[in-house]
Design a protein around this nucleic acid. Structure first.
Length: 116
RNA sequence: CGAGUAAGCCGGACAGCCGCGGGUGUACGCCGAAAGGCCGCAUCUGAGGAAAGUCCGAGCUCCACAGGGCAGGAAUAACGGCUAACGGCCGCCGGGGGCGACCCCAGGGAAAGUGCACAGAAAUAUACCGCUGCCGUUUGGCAGUAAGGGUGGAAUGGUGCGGUAAGAGCGCACCGGCGCAAGGGAGACUUUGCGGCCAGGUAAACCCUAUUCGGAGCAACACCGUGGAGGGACAUACGCGUCGGCCCGGCGCGUCCCGUGGAGGUGGCUUGAGCCGCGCGGCAACGCGCGGUCGAGAAAGAUGGUUGUCCAAGACAGAACUCGGCUUAUAGGCUUAGUCGCGGC
RNA sequence: GUGGAUAUAGCUUAGUUGGUUAAAGCGCCAGUUUGUGGCACUGGAGACCGUCGGUUCGAAUCCGACUUUCCACC
């Protein structure tokens, strides 16, 4: 269980939006929903509000890179949805990573925080 | 040296580590009846000049379609060539702009017809003022006249001389336009000569002429297809449900085959009117020959992160079936060839 | 991928087809009325018609390119 599974279908995103908890930071919004099983699944979105195709790609890549760094610390059995915001493509990767870590801590889905 | 013109090119570079998509090869292990797949490793490879807008033209696929004409609709518009084709490109002609290199032009037809237009007397048919003649003589009436005034973007070809009552291509010279003939050119066209003055603009107004045009789009389309609707065969031996109080009997549940196809999957999917080099033909677009080469192919959708060095400190911007163009966005830089100005030898 | 519509005063719309003057309502400003305000009445300002270019004597209108917003179909 060491590979990120993507959320694909629209109903999965809707379920996380409707029933999950959220944390908002200037460059990222994190939704998290507990579900049965040990898989961790992640969905990344960038709407047309973000900008052109280049800017949307940039936002997605930053979020994906951040979640790759953060991956070993996540608790099992959660669905995550990461939403990019208008600032996301114009920000450095370290900023996204720290904001995402902060949001995850606020949702108490990081493994080390629970074990402590 | 400065200014400007045209054509072409580049679109941060290099290295280390971590990570991602695809192709090929493959050990152990795991899954699977098998084919094969997963994980791992090695190796090769991985966005653009516009990938964009979707404005044109094609390939490809499916649908429709006996042949011909008219009407209607859309697009294009000098001429010659290039191209698979084009509304594209090249050359050239005509017109316009620039001192020049050079640039720009939807550039057929207004003597087929209709419509339109402030002002102005009048816009293709006309006399308001004026000028001249005659009549009347008080204002005036009739006729001639486009030289002048005024209006307008445009006023009966322009300028000058003659001519005339005053005028007028009425006559002449030059210029402009039109027609005819001859010479040149592949042609648009051009040069020369002659003729006579007949002909306002607008067709990106209707229209006329010539040419071209069937429709839809990779979410096309083809194949597989648990479930579901349909048809057939077998078994109707057993069991269950149903019609019924019960029996016989009928129907459904079962197996196999045919066929339709929702979800899903696979193909279409990248080797092509390809790219690079050399030679030849052509003013050029381009063509021909020879040699070399393979440069993305995903399916929630791959190029990112970080560290270091360098410089001019990195603009516009991300493939989604594929090509040929057009249009639009674009920091900065490089190369080549002309032009103009200034200075020096 | 394909097709269509939209842009006009601060706001909501006419005018566009068929060329020469941009009209209306609400709002805004000033005045009249009223003890004051509203209502009512009178008057006024406010637009170079999304941007750029072209055709024409003349363009909101015709033509081309671009931009914005919205819609439909597969």
């Amino acid at each position: 269980m060491d590979k990120v599974i993507s959320l694909t279908e629209n109903y999965e995103f809707r379920r996380v939006y409707a029933k999950g908890k959220s944390a908002v930071r200037p460059a990222v919004v994190v939704y998290a929903l507990r579900r049965p099983g040990k898989d961790v699944r992640v969905g990344i979105t960038a709407t047309k509000k973000i900008g052109s195709a280049v800017e949307r790609n940039r936002a997605r890549r930053l979020l994906r890179e951040s979640v790759r760094t953060l991956w070993p610390r996540l608790r099992f059995g959660y669905d995550f949805v990461l939403v990019s915001r208008g600032k996301t493509p114009h920000v450095k990767c370290g900023t996204v990573l720290s904001e995402m870590t902060d949001a995850m801590r606020a949702l108490s889905v990081l493994r080390e925080e629970v074990e402590r």
